[in-house]
Design a protein around this nucleic acid. Structure first.
Length: 479
RNA sequence: CGGGGCGUAGCUCAGCUUGGCUAGAGCGCUUGGUUCGGGACCAAGAGGUCGGUGGUUCAAAUCCACUCGCCCCGACCA
């Protein structure tokens, strides 16, 4: 393929939403599928997801989790066993009524999440305290019949991982839920270079079937916020619904304590919205499918064979440490390649032309700053790892500054609404803790309580009802 | 489900108001040649049941009816 996008992408200042769509489609991360609300994840987008998977999977394994796989189809009755769960998910389930040309005795739902089928199995596998904890994870696809979809951020079918653990004590399960939240936070910050706020969800925002939901929340460039990952302490809700009991050390029967947690391909969308600019995608090196692209610049009157050889020689010493690609296509011009790789977000470009060959140097260009640095050819392989680190850190620093600038405080409902309309972001405002006040804010301003920080300070009276005591919690308009 | 938009070449679209000759452009694609340090150029080509069905008419991409689909904005949500 020498073709591809020629048109410029929409500027963020003109139409943020269109800018996002342009980047995702023109960087060939994803395309609309023939099925409404569904997308095809193309190789460039999938490679980013694979990088994410690998990093997360390593962290899950390092904390004692094992991967497994449960079926896509769940008997409809399973979903109904947990009251809040069915209420939350039934409306958005795809249901299979026929198979093999016959009406099924019982319809099957395509999993919107797998708690129910997993707990049906856990009932078989758990009898004793010695069987616990069960620390399982699966990488899977799920389907939720969403009304309004958006590439990567919300599609009818999406890819994710879902962890499902079973524990002998409440304390242990709660620790697990918090441990995973920590993993999500670490991954987000260290791999995605995406700073987040973390904490508990309010009653109104928690997962259907959970006692406590922990969340990480990120700030996008347009001032909207995004839930990037959740970890749930499920208490004994699913154990009771599926009658999963174990005998404890004292010989007593007890219901198992549970957690579930997940992150999805939404993270790819979050990545786009966190770092990218009007020239296209900007990838943090750790998640970039290609970290360095080497572009030989060939000319009619130059030593093209020498330039090509030099390009390969420059790429060679990186070995497995750095993901390098030499773009030796001869059917597109260097300028075309520059634009294409910028659009695709590759962190470092190395140019080698006749002038460079003469001076035994290359030109190193950073995607994040656009800065061009002539570098001696024999020094490049030593310098690149450091520059990649600088880019990774620089992206984090910039994103962190934006997050900090995006966190503001408001004391009155009026100033809160004003701040929400003018700048968005996370507005910290006093809230009494009641569902009524939370719902009223949500209805009137479309902003929701993103989380309740563990360290939330007491701060006088609620901005809505005027009653105290109130805690300061961040509100935001979410994707 | 409400509001808006769009279905004509792989992509972006023009043509439709006021029906008419062989349905067009740019980009992309193929072949050959010259190029190549920020989206190169020349030449020759390939590529279309104008979303679908029905109707009006001598004649429909164009007018009428019905219908299908997708995208964007909003309500719901990872």
């Amino acid at each position: 393929m020498t073709g591809g996008p020629v048109a410029k992408i929409t500027k963020r200042s003109e139409d943020y939403s269109q800018w996002y769509i342009d980047i995702v489609t023109r960087a060939e991360m994803a395309d609309y599928a023939p099925v409404k609300g569904c997308m095809v994840i193309r190789p460039w987008g999938y490679a980013i997801w694979e990088r994410m998977q690998r990093a997360l999977d390593d962290m899950f394994k390092d904390t004692g989790h094992s991967n497994c796989y449960f079926p896509l189809m769940i008997p409809q009755s399973f979903l109904a066993k947990e009251a809040e769960h069915v209420e939350g998910f039934a409306p958005e389930c795809a249901v299979i009524t026929h198979g093999g040309g016959k009406l099924l005795d019982e319809p099957l739902v395509i999993r919107p999440t797998s708690e129910t089928i997993i707990w049906a199995m856990y009932k078989k596998w758990i009898q004793s305290w010695r069987d616990l904890p069960l620390l399982y994870n699966q990488w899977a696809n799920v389907v939720r019949w969403e009304m309004r979809t958006r590439l990567f951020l919300r599609t009818s079918e999406f890819l994710w991982q879902e962890g499902h653990t079973a524990h002998a004590t409440s304390k242990e399960a709660m620790e697990e839920a918090e441990r995973i939240l920590g993993i999500y936070r670490t991954f987000s910050e260290q791999w995605m270079a995406m700073p987040v706020l973390s904490g508990r969800k309010s009653e109104g925002q928690k997962f259907p079937g959970a006692d406590t939901t922990f969340t990480i929340e990120a700030l996008m460039q347009d001032g909207k916020v995004l839930q990037a990952g959740t970890s749930h302490y499920l208490g004994q809700n699913f154990a009771k619904a599926f009658d999963v009991q174990f005998q404890n050390r004292d010989g007593q029967l007890e219901y198992v304590y549970a957690t579930s947690w997940g992150v999805s391909t939404r993270l790819v969308g979050a990545l786009v919205m966190t770092h990218s600019d009007d020239a296209g995608l900007v990838l943090p090196p750790k998640l970039a499918p290609v970290e360095v692209v080497v572009i030989p610049i060939l000319k009619a009157d130059a030593d093209n064979a020498g330039i090509l050889a030099a390009a390969y020689r420059v790429a060679e010493p990186f070995g497995d440490d750095v993901r390098v690609r030499v773009d030796d296509r001869d059917n597109v011009s260097p300028g075309w390649k520059f634009n294409e790789w910028e659009l695709k977000g590759v962190p470092i470009r190395i140019e080698i032309g006749p002038k460079d060959l003469e001076k035994q140097q290359v030109v190193l260009v950073r995607r994040d700053t656009g800065k061009k640095t002539p570098t001696p050819m024999d020094a490049i392989s030593f310098q690149v790892p450091g520059v990649l680190e600088e880019i990774q850190d620089g992206l984090m620093k910039k994103a962190k500054e934006r997050l900090e600038a995006g966190c503001r405080a408001a004391d009155t409902y009026e100033s809160f609404q004003k701040a929400m309309d003018e700048v968005g972001g996370f507005i910290y405002a006093p809230w009494c803790g009641s569902r009524e006040c939370e719902d009223r804010v949500s209805e009137e301003t479309k902003a929701t309580i993103r989380l309740v920080p563990d360290t939330a300070e007491d701060c006088g009276v609620c901005m809505v009802c005027g009653k105290g005591p109130a805690k300061r919690v961040p509100f935001g308009r979410a994707y």
